[in-house]
């Protein structure tokens, strides 16, 4: 079970994503932004950070990286892909997921422990959770407000493609309290909160996030 973790210049949470993969029993494989090479991995994680400084628009430059072209091709063939925070922004910019992330409505960067409701436990990354379960994981972002036009939102809601929703006060102004969504085939998931920072109660608020990485290992083993 080989899980690729991409490092762009400015990626920060790659070490955390790699650790989460290891905790779940997988093998973490480092992928470099400039390589047209996925190194035969079974799944890819696009981790958080500030790729290329995120100065133009979050994820706008990263989507053009050589490795992302490979990720887009592989995702179209059904490879599981997880985008966390900046990774979610990159997947949206790359059109693997619909919509976009904009500046938090209160304009501040927010780092806090956030309750999420699991709305779809049928994706490649969420089978370990009970439908409707609430999990506590860190949210840390300045541009986490999920936006999409009404028809896209209707489609996401209608097809059950909202994977996670914020519980309680909306932390960033996301439409429909959306924290994470999935592709039509349930293989690509993007979310703003950080499950990879919640794999051990020693260093995170809980170990609730580990379920995402365990789900992936399950899904690939079954497939």
């Amino acid at each position: 079970m080989r899980v690729g973790v991409i490092t762009f210049p400015g990626t920060l949470d790659d070490v955390d994503a790699e650790r989460a993969v290891r905790y779940a029993g997988g093998e973490a494989v480092k992928l470099w932004h400039a390589d047209h090479d996925l190194k035969d991995v079974d799944a890819v994680i696009v981790p958080g950070g500030f790729s290329y400084g995120d100065y133009l628009r979050c994820g706008a430059i990263a989507r053009f990286a050589p490795v992302m072209q490979e990720v887009v091709d592989a995702a179209k063939k059904g490879m599981p892909v997880l985008g966390i925070c900046n990774g979610f922004q990159i997947l949206c910019e790359a059109h693997l997921l619909p919509g976009a992330l904009i500046r938090n409505h209160k304009l501040h960067f927010v780092c806090r422990d956030q309750w999420l409701k699991v709305e779809n436990n049928a994706t490649a990354w969420t089978t370990r959770y009970d439908q409707g379960a609430e999990i506590l994981v860190p949210l840390k972002s300045g541009e986490g407000g999920y936006q999409a036009d009404q028809s896209t939102l209707d489609e996401l809601e209608g097809e059950g493609r909202v994977v996670f929703r914020y519980v309680g006060e909306n932390p960033n102004g996301s439409r429909n309290n959306i924290a994470g969504i999935t592709s039509a085939n349930g293989r690509v998931v993007g979310l703003m909160p950080h499950p990879e920072h919640a794999i051990d109660a020693l260093t995170g608020p809980t170990d609730d996030g580990l379920g995402m990485f365990l789900s992936l290992v399950d899904s690939v083993v079954k497939a």
């Binding site: 290329y52 400084g53 100065y55 133009l56 430059i61 053009f64």
Partner: peptide, 14 residues
């Protein structure tokens, strides 16, 4: 201007 610099650096790569 880090923002402008980042864009300028990306253009040749694209």
């Amino acid at each position: 201007d880090p923002q402008g610099q980042a864009v300028a650096n990306a253009l040749p790569r694209l």
